[in-house]
């Protein structure tokens, strides 16, 4: 398995190195939304004397810088490709290979994250200076951040694949993934830190998987929650990863059995 992964990684890095400019431009997508909402919250905080709840303007900056980093590290967009592969019949040859198609997606993501990391950090450095970001991170937070961001990555990845697998039946998952994206938009910590979501929205974000995808690792990286709370939140992440892992395996097994290439 390790050898397989090494071969895949090398092939993917070679492929990615042909598209250097592309990867830098696409990284803008991870950065823009956090910066936009950062600017909005800074404006709100300034209108209210510089403080909203436990956040002042510098905390917002810390939060959204961490969010951009987490978005880049944890997010994956493969669900869109999968629908396309099914519709174009490109899935069929992959199914015949001795490796589960999901591994190609894993490698794809790893390489993309590695290649975009340096330009991303440069841009985030600019944002940190512009907004004078403050981090309350302690060494314990960094230790906890590692499992938290890994779980978040696994969660968004499996969640995306769970949705994508429904394309075995519908061949179009665009509508479903839009719903999913917008739930992430509201509940995952993009439009506001989870702690600032009003009443019921905050409850929903932590009762459903969405808050654990971005908001939780972001707060841990920023040092916005204490260690016991962080541990509970990581527990929540682990729970949802297990749920989606089982659900995905089940759905895949049923789906692939009744899959027939489009046009067959």
């Amino acid at each position: 398995m390790i050898r397989t992964y090494r071969a895949l990684l090398i092939a993917q890095i070679q492929a990615a190195s042909q598209y250097r400019v592309q990867s830098i431009l696409w990284m803008l997508f991870s950065v823009m939304r956090p910066v936009i909402f950062l600017a909005a919250w800074v404006a709100v905080a300034n209108a209210q004397g510089g403080q909203i709840g436990a956040y002042d303007t510098r905390d917002f900056a810390g939060y959204y810088v961490a969010l951009a980093l987490v978005t880049n590290l944890a997010f994956s967009w493969n669900a869109y490709d999968f629908e396309f592969e099914i519709r174009m019949g490109r899935l069929s040859p992959k199914l015949l290979r001795p490796l589960h198609p999901i591994h190609y997606a894993v490698v794809d993501n790893l390489v993309w994250k590695a290649t975009t990391m340096i330009p991303l950090l440069l841009i985030l450095a600019v944002v940190i200076v512009t907004f004078d970001a403050r981090f309350r991170t302690t060494p314990a937070h960094i230790l906890l951040f590692v499992p938290s961001v890994l779980l978040a990555g696994a969660l968004t990845f499996l969640g995306g694949w769970f949705l994508a697998t429904t394309a075995f039946w519908t061949t179009r998952v665009h509508a479903v993934s839009t719903l999913w994206d917008r739930a992430v938009f509201i509940f995952a910590g993009q439009i506001a830190p989870l702690a600032l979501l009003p009443g019921v929205l905050k409850t929903i974000s932590l009762a459903l998987p969405f808050g654990y995808m971005l908001g939780v690792p972001t707060e841990i990286l920023r040092g916005g929650v204490d260690v016991p709370t962080a541990l509970v939140l990581i527990g929540g992440q682990a729970f949802w990863v297990v749920v989606f892992y089982i659900a995905f395996l089940r759905l895949w097994r049923v789906g692939v059995r009744q899959y027939s290439a489009v046009g067959a």
């Binding site: 909005a40 709100v44 209108a47 909203i52 509508a175 719903l179 509201i186 439009i191």
Partner: peptide, 23 residues
């Protein structure tokens, strides 16, 4: 889909304005 996108965008603005009256 468009309705969902619009609705959530308006929702985001409302969340911001639940903390202030002027931005």
């Amino acid at each position: 889909q468009s309705l969902v996108i619009m609705g959530t965008s308006v929702g985001a603005v409302l969340v911001l304005f639940s903390y202030t009256t002027v931005l």
